[in-house]
Amino acid sequence: MTELPTGRPADADLVALLDGELSPAQAQWVESWLSRDTELRRRRDLLAHDSDELKGAFAALLAEAPEVKLERMLLGLTGYGVHRATAHPRSSSFLLRSRPRLALLAAGIALFATGVLVDRFLPDWREAARIEVTSDSEDEWRQAVAEYMSLYTPETIAGIADDPSHMERELAVVGAKLGVGLPASELSLPGMALKRAQILQYDGKPLGQVAYLDPHDGVTALCIYGDSHQESAPTTERRVGLNIVHWASHGRAFMLVGRKPMADLRDLAGRLSQRLTL
């Protein structure tokens, strides 16, 4: 790519120009040819394939990765286990810290989720929960929630009718359980329908979930866990293929989780963290 350009540009040069991979001198050479060569311009247009379409297709494929299975495989590897004994607790993988209480979350799901979901996935969850690792890190609940949310599809909540008064009642129940004010007006987010509020439990403590649906990114959930000892500002992370923004205040931990781009999720989390009063 450093040699001096000569002659008529080839397809590879046109593509490199489209990809922004040419040096200024090389780009100038290709562009000067394009300005006077109709056939070359036609060739460039033919090659100008839309890479967004490609990225979108492969992003959808990424969402199909069997992440839970792969994570369990990783957890079972001999060399990986050494990590537990030697690594600093904060730098160790969340995977190792997240397993012991999954059964408790599964119990929470069994109480509240629909039969289809439970019948289909609970055996798998129980199997995962049998892996015994002990830890007391504060972020285990987020891994458990992320794994639970990874089972959601838009269809999981799309069938719930939009009924504002019913929604208010659900929010009031969840809010009362968690000791948090949850008026629908404060929870509304642009372009997203509030579909459901429900109480789950994690490690014997209430865990509230408010689920949103939007046509573009599917399900996004605000989850509130009533057991946090540290205040923290909104922070981003990624678990089980989902984007997450989490923060904590007044003894409660919050997380907004979904498939929205991280920047959008951060913006929404900023709005919610300012509005929610305790």
């Binding site: 990783l74 990986y80 050494v82 990590h83 690594a87 730098s91 160790s92």
Partner: peptide, 16 residues
């Protein structure tokens, strides 16, 4: 440590 802590974040992309 970086390998062990970071592996889990790349499983899906490796699979793809």
């Amino acid at each position: 440590l970086e390998v062990r802590a970071g592996l889990v974040n790349h499983l899906a992309r490796l699979w793809r």
